[in-house]
Design a protein around this nucleic acid. Structure first.
Lengths: 229, 229
DNA sequence: AAATGTTCTTGTGTATACAATTATTTGTGA
DNA sequence: TCACAAATAATTGTATACACAAGAACATTT
């Protein structure tokens, strides 16, 4: 699983291992490798201009994320992520985002509420202007802040991972003004229920929010959404 | 996210890195380290009689599992797992085991059904005889087979991880004849609904199964259960 | 010609050496 | 005695070298 929190991700930025790790992961998630392609340590280290050590460590981590399969004494192979995996993740997320919103009712801080309100406010502006990159970034921040607000290290960890896994698909789904606007409305409603400490409603709305994304994906065709933009 | 499947775990058995990885993980999960204790690469490698390389790789993997926190250029620290984490995991599992049972209705194979029936049959025998180790092992196998049967690599992955995380607690809860017997009855009912392809019922029963474990934990006191047996 | 054994190549697994960074101690001046 | 700076020690980060395992190609034997 992935990087645990922004803090660590930030720090890792300055280690070679972190750079290699993120580079290979991005390449896999963006589909730059074909399925089951062999990842030779020497080749990667040469192409990135580093030694094998950081490459090895990065590959071992990617194995744990499930993106790479390592056969001892043989090599590392791209496992990648199939469209079924993405679909499964969305279903799992729909359950867990519901739980997250429910727990947030109890654990959210004033500061987090302020952050979320600001995010929603800014979103509306950027949706109006069709600034897709900002919209995506704000959507990210909304969800990650919610994960933080649930007060569970474990739940935050797993949801952040999944969130990252489906990043490419999410980026594409949000590139429609109509869907972006609806998503923003849904965020607003979720936050309201959390503020009201209405656990049942918060859970249901967060649940629905992801389900609506799934419906949206089905309409647009998942395979198309997995392509690079 | 932990080891992906039995296959890989099996293969890793023969690499130093795998041994070191499992050794440190067990030590952490068994509470042999105190919270935030520093893990010095040199010390560990010396005590295990290996070089720093496999130790480093193991620590990097443990970081991804969330059991260790690595501060670049400083060191690795035990993060461990608190009783709140365990509690959270049980709640999350109750949702996901439900989903797993639901999906199993559609994807389970005849062979897997046979396996599960055999497990239940054997369990009854060992419960009668109070063979705690076998009971625990069979409980493990029941759940892991269910995870396999759900037909989702992603869900199987995360549930296996969590299952392992709470191993120590599960071992202790199952060491009561009364609870073991009830658990076995619950397993039987879940399998029946899966065989009947009754998705709603399977989901609800699997859900309840974990909830009952939580209730059981609360009764016995989580702190006590986290101790080594 | 088929099966078996042998070497050679390729790539990973581990150990060690060195560089960079951080923590600690020591020394100096006010 | 305290503050602060410089030197020193400890620890991680990276690079490189060598050992080992697996598989392929080729030779050998029946």
């Amino acid at each position: 699983m992935d990087n645990y929190n922004a803090n660590k991700e930030e720090m890792d930025k300055y280690s070679l291992r972190g750079k290699v790790f993120r580079k290979i992961r991005e390449d896999i998630l963006e589909g730059n490798y074909s399925e089951m392609e062999e990842l030779r340590e020497a080749a990667i280290s040469k192409s990135l201009g580093v030694s094998r050590t950081p490459v090895r460590e990065a590959l071992r981590q990617l194995e744990l994320e499930g993106l790479v399969t390592i056969v001892p004494n043989k090599g590392a192979y791209v496992t990648g992520i199939t469209s079924k995996d993405i679909y499964d993740i969305y279903i799992i997320r729909s359950y867990l985002e519901g739980l997250c919103a429910k727990w947030a009712c109890e654990h959210i801080t004033e500061e987090q509420i302020d952050t979320l309100e600001e995010i929603i406010y800014l979103s509306e502006f950027h949706i109006q202007k069709e600034h897709w990159d900002q919209i995506f970034e704000l959507d990210n921040r909304f969800h990650l802040t919610m994960y933080e607000a649930c007060g569970s290290k474990i739940l935050e960890h797993i949801l952040s991972d999944y969130h990252h896994y489906v990043e490419r698909v999410r980026k594409n789904t949000l590139s429609s003004k109509e869907r972006a606007r609806k998503a923003s409305e849904e965020h607003k409603a979720i936050l309201q229920s959390v503020k009201d400490k209405d656990e049942a409603r918060a859970e249901r709305l967060a649940n629905d929010h992801i389900f609506k994304s799934i419906a949206n994906i089905k309409n647009q065709g998942l395979e198309k959404l997995m392509k690079k933009h």
